[in-house]
Amino acid sequence: MNLTCIVCPNSCELFIEKNGDKLKVSGHMCKRGIEFAENEIKAPKRVVCTTVKTNLQNTPRLPVKTDKEIPKEKIFDVMKEVNKLEVINKTKVGDILIKNVCGTEANIVATDNFLF
């Protein structure tokens, strides 16, 4: 099986062989490739980046992300939750806006400052 590693811009082509329960990964330039391949086969995960509404006219959106990867199949559930949110308080990069979003153990954090 072939996969393209998406961890960094090198975009390594990974070759994966199944040996019983164990996976044999080759083609990676760094060890992050092995971890990526293992996750990708068992349960693919992604970081979700999006924006939330604010109450300020001149800054109508605040960018946010999940602070860790979440299961791929939860992406649209997370989007639904995030889209319910409206930011009205001063917020700094890294501030948590939603804890444990959709039970994924990831938090929704601000990726920009919202100061006024």
């Binding site: 960094c8 811009p9 970081v47 980046c49 999006t50 924006t51 960018p63 992300k65 990069v93 990726t111 920009d112 400052n113």
Partner: peptide, 25 residues
């Protein structure tokens, strides 16, 4: 960078996956 809200920035410079606004900040 202000509008590039996706991540993938800064892997070479900071050895982290940052979003555009985080990298700019």
């Amino acid at each position: 960078l202000k509008q590039c809200i996706h991540d993938g920035f800064g892997l070479v410079k900071f050895n982290e996956q940052l979003t555009g606004p985080e990298y700019a900040n």
